[in-house]
Protein backbone atom coordinates (compact mmCIF):
# COMPACT_ATOMS: atom_id res chain seq x y z
CA UNK A 1 0.00 0.00 0.00
CA UNK A 2 2.76 2.45 0.90
CA UNK A 3 4.56 1.40 -2.29
CA UNK A 4 1.55 2.53 -4.32
CA UNK A 5 1.49 5.77 -2.38
CA UNK A 6 5.17 6.43 -3.08
CA UNK A 7 4.54 5.79 -6.74
CA UNK A 8 1.32 7.71 -7.24
CA UNK A 9 2.28 10.89 -5.41
CA UNK A 10 4.60 11.76 -8.29
CA UNK A 11 1.74 11.70 -10.75
CA UNK A 12 -0.35 14.43 -9.15
CA UNK A 13 0.29 15.43 -5.56
CA UNK A 14 4.01 16.13 -5.99
CA UNK A 15 4.09 16.38 -9.76
CA UNK A 16 7.29 17.91 -11.12
CA UNK A 17 7.87 20.60 -12.22
CA UNK A 18 4.59 22.12 -10.99
CA UNK A 19 4.30 21.01 -7.37
CA UNK A 20 8.04 20.76 -6.86
CA UNK A 21 9.35 23.70 -8.88
CA UNK A 22 12.64 22.08 -9.87
CA UNK A 23 14.16 20.98 -13.15
CA UNK A 24 12.93 24.01 -15.03
CA UNK A 25 15.74 24.23 -17.57
CA UNK A 26 14.93 21.05 -19.52
CA UNK A 27 11.22 21.75 -19.02
CA UNK A 28 11.47 25.07 -20.79
CA UNK A 29 14.11 24.21 -23.35
CA UNK A 30 13.10 20.92 -24.93
CA UNK A 31 9.31 21.27 -24.97
CA UNK A 32 9.13 22.77 -28.46
CA UNK A 33 7.30 19.60 -29.53
CA UNK A 34 5.43 16.85 -27.71
CA UNK A 35 7.77 14.01 -28.69
CA UNK A 36 10.88 15.95 -27.60
CA UNK A 37 9.28 16.52 -24.21
CA UNK A 38 8.37 12.84 -23.90
CA UNK A 39 11.89 11.71 -24.83
CA UNK A 40 13.50 14.06 -22.32
CA UNK A 41 11.04 12.91 -19.65
CA UNK A 42 11.80 9.25 -20.24
CA UNK A 43 15.57 9.84 -20.22
CA UNK A 44 15.21 11.67 -16.91
CA UNK A 45 12.99 8.88 -15.54
CA UNK A 46 15.68 6.31 -16.32
CA UNK A 47 18.44 8.29 -14.61
CA UNK A 48 16.20 9.13 -11.66
CA UNK A 49 15.10 5.52 -11.08
CA UNK A 50 18.61 4.08 -11.40
CA UNK A 51 20.19 6.70 -9.16
CA UNK A 52 17.41 6.19 -6.60
CA UNK A 53 18.13 2.43 -6.55
CA UNK A 54 21.86 2.91 -6.08
CA UNK A 55 21.60 5.72 -3.54
CA UNK A 56 19.09 3.71 -1.54
CA UNK A 57 21.14 0.52 -1.69
CA UNK A 58 24.27 2.35 -0.56
CA UNK A 59 22.55 4.57 1.99
CA UNK A 60 24.22 2.90 4.99
CA UNK A 61 27.66 2.85 3.36
CA UNK A 62 28.06 6.40 2.06
CA UNK A 63 29.41 8.66 4.83
CA UNK A 64 27.16 11.63 5.48
CA UNK A 65 29.84 14.25 4.89
CA UNK A 66 30.60 13.24 1.32
CA UNK A 67 27.06 12.22 0.41
CA UNK A 68 26.33 15.03 -2.06
CA UNK A 69 29.52 14.39 -4.00
CA UNK A 70 28.71 10.66 -4.07
CA UNK A 71 25.18 11.31 -5.33
CA UNK A 72 26.48 13.59 -8.06
CA UNK A 73 28.93 10.90 -9.16
CA UNK A 74 26.19 8.24 -9.24
CA UNK A 75 23.88 10.50 -11.25
CA UNK A 76 26.69 11.47 -13.63
CA UNK A 77 27.42 7.80 -14.33
CA UNK A 78 23.85 7.05 -15.39
CA UNK A 79 23.67 10.29 -17.38
CA UNK A 80 26.72 9.26 -19.39
CA UNK A 81 25.07 5.90 -20.04
CA UNK A 82 21.94 7.59 -21.39
CA UNK A 83 24.08 9.95 -23.45
CA UNK A 84 26.04 7.14 -25.09
CA UNK A 85 22.96 5.00 -25.77
CA UNK A 86 21.11 7.91 -27.35
CA UNK A 87 24.11 8.83 -29.44
CA UNK A 88 24.30 5.26 -30.74
CA UNK A 89 20.63 4.42 -31.32
CA UNK A 90 18.59 7.66 -31.38
CA UNK A 91 20.96 10.05 -33.14
CA UNK A 92 18.37 12.56 -34.49
CA UNK A 93 16.87 12.88 -31.02
CA UNK A 94 20.33 13.23 -29.54
CA UNK A 95 20.97 16.19 -31.84
CA UNK A 96 17.64 17.87 -30.98
CA UNK A 97 17.99 17.52 -27.21
CA UNK A 98 21.65 18.48 -27.57
CA UNK A 99 23.26 19.99 -24.54
CA UNK A 100 20.33 19.09 -22.29
CA UNK A 101 21.28 15.42 -22.19
CA UNK A 102 24.57 15.96 -20.32
CA UNK A 103 22.69 18.53 -18.24
CA UNK A 104 20.43 15.80 -16.79
CA UNK A 105 23.23 15.48 -14.26
CA UNK A 106 22.40 18.89 -12.76
CA UNK A 107 18.63 18.39 -12.89
CA UNK A 108 17.73 19.32 -9.34
CA UNK A 109 14.80 16.88 -9.25
CA UNK A 110 17.17 13.91 -9.31
CA UNK A 111 19.53 15.21 -6.63
CA UNK A 112 16.48 16.35 -4.67
CA UNK A 113 14.91 12.87 -4.67
CA UNK A 114 18.24 11.25 -3.77
CA UNK A 115 18.66 13.53 -0.79
CA UNK A 116 15.06 13.78 0.36
CA UNK A 117 13.82 10.25 -0.35
CA UNK A 118 16.24 7.56 -1.53
CA UNK A 119 18.85 8.22 1.15
CA UNK A 120 16.32 7.35 3.87
CA UNK A 121 14.11 4.62 2.41
CA UNK A 122 14.46 0.98 1.30
CA UNK A 123 15.20 0.11 -2.32
CA UNK A 124 11.68 -0.91 -3.37
CA UNK A 125 10.11 2.32 -2.15
CA UNK A 126 12.85 4.29 -3.87
CA UNK A 127 12.11 2.56 -7.16
CA UNK A 128 8.42 3.41 -6.80
CA UNK A 129 9.31 6.99 -6.00
CA UNK A 130 11.72 7.31 -8.92
CA UNK A 131 9.32 5.83 -11.48
CA UNK A 132 6.40 7.88 -10.15
CA UNK A 133 8.17 11.24 -10.10
CA UNK A 134 9.81 10.44 -13.44
CA UNK A 135 6.52 9.59 -15.15
CA UNK A 136 4.89 12.69 -13.68
CA UNK A 137 7.74 14.77 -15.06
CA UNK A 138 7.41 13.09 -18.48
CA UNK A 139 3.68 13.78 -18.43
CA UNK A 140 4.18 17.48 -17.67
CA UNK A 141 6.80 17.82 -20.38
CA UNK A 142 4.61 16.06 -22.94
CA UNK A 143 1.59 18.25 -22.14
CA UNK A 144 3.65 21.44 -22.31
CA UNK A 145 5.30 20.24 -25.51
CA UNK A 146 1.92 19.35 -27.03
CA UNK A 147 0.42 22.77 -26.27
CA UNK A 148 3.41 24.57 -27.75
CA UNK A 149 3.53 22.29 -30.78
CA UNK A 150 -0.18 22.64 -31.53
CA UNK A 151 -0.15 26.43 -31.27
CA UNK A 152 3.31 27.03 -32.66
CA UNK A 153 3.44 24.58 -35.54
CA UNK A 154 -0.12 23.28 -35.94
CA UNK A 155 0.95 19.66 -35.45
CA UNK A 156 0.83 17.07 -32.68
CA UNK A 157 3.56 14.38 -32.51
CA UNK A 158 4.45 15.51 -36.03
CA UNK A 159 0.96 15.04 -37.53
CA UNK A 160 -0.84 18.08 -38.91
CA UNK A 161 -4.11 18.61 -37.05
CA UNK A 162 -5.34 21.82 -38.62
CA UNK A 163 -6.21 22.53 -42.24
CA UNK A 164 -3.70 24.10 -44.62
CA UNK A 165 -5.04 27.58 -43.78
CA UNK A 166 -3.65 27.49 -40.24
CA UNK A 167 -0.99 30.08 -39.64
CA UNK A 168 1.22 29.00 -36.74
CA UNK A 169 2.04 31.29 -33.83
CA UNK A 170 5.80 31.13 -34.01
CA UNK A 171 5.97 32.88 -30.65
CA UNK A 172 4.91 29.62 -28.98
CA UNK A 173 7.88 27.53 -30.05
CA UNK A 174 10.29 30.36 -29.28
CA UNK A 175 11.72 30.85 -25.75
CA UNK A 176 9.11 33.41 -24.55
CA UNK A 177 6.26 30.97 -25.26
CA UNK A 178 7.86 28.42 -22.94
CA UNK A 179 7.98 30.78 -19.98
CA UNK A 180 4.47 32.13 -20.51
CA UNK A 181 2.86 28.70 -20.88
CA UNK A 182 4.63 27.17 -17.92
CA UNK A 183 3.44 30.13 -15.85
CA UNK A 184 -0.14 29.79 -17.08
CA UNK A 185 -0.18 26.01 -16.48
CA UNK A 186 1.08 26.62 -12.95
CA UNK A 187 -1.81 29.04 -12.46
CA UNK A 188 -4.30 26.46 -13.75
CA UNK A 189 -2.85 23.86 -11.36
CA UNK A 190 -3.37 26.30 -8.50
CA UNK A 191 -7.02 26.79 -9.48
CA UNK A 192 -7.66 23.04 -9.67
CA UNK A 193 -5.97 22.44 -6.33
CA UNK A 194 -8.05 25.05 -4.54
CA UNK A 195 -11.25 24.38 -6.44
CA UNK A 196 -11.83 28.10 -6.89
CA UNK A 197 -10.32 31.13 -8.64
Amino acid sequence: MSLWKDFSKGLWKDIAPFRIVLGLCPTLAVTTAADNGLAMGLATTFVLTCSNILVSALRNIIPRRVRIASYVLIIATFTVMVELVMQAYFYPLYMILGIFIPLIVVNCIILGRAEAFASKRPVLNSIADGVGIGLGFSMSLTVLGAIREILGAGTLFGYAIFGPDFSPMTFMVKPPGAFVWLGLLLGVMNIIKRGRV
Partner: peptide, 23 residues
Amino acid sequence: IPDFMKGTAIGLVTAGLLSLAFF
Protein backbone atom coordinates in the same frame (compact mmCIF):
# COMPACT_ATOMS: atom_id res chain seq x y z
CA ILE B 1 -2.40 39.88 -8.85
CA PRO B 2 -5.10 37.19 -8.85
CA ASP B 3 -4.45 34.74 -6.03
CA PHE B 4 -3.84 31.70 -8.21
CA MET B 5 -1.12 33.46 -10.23
CA LYS B 6 0.88 34.72 -7.25
CA GLY B 7 4.53 33.73 -6.78
CA THR B 8 6.19 31.47 -9.31
CA ALA B 9 3.33 31.51 -11.83
CA ILE B 10 3.37 35.25 -12.44
CA GLY B 11 7.17 35.15 -12.22
CA LEU B 12 7.33 32.77 -15.16
CA VAL B 13 4.94 34.84 -17.26
CA THR B 14 7.01 37.93 -16.49
CA ALA B 15 10.17 36.08 -17.50
CA GLY B 16 8.40 35.25 -20.77
CA LEU B 17 7.75 38.93 -21.45
CA LEU B 18 11.34 39.80 -20.55
CA SER B 19 12.51 37.07 -22.89
CA LEU B 20 10.30 38.59 -25.60
CA ALA B 21 11.98 41.94 -25.01
CA PHE B 22 15.40 40.31 -25.42
CA PHE B 23 14.12 38.84 -28.65
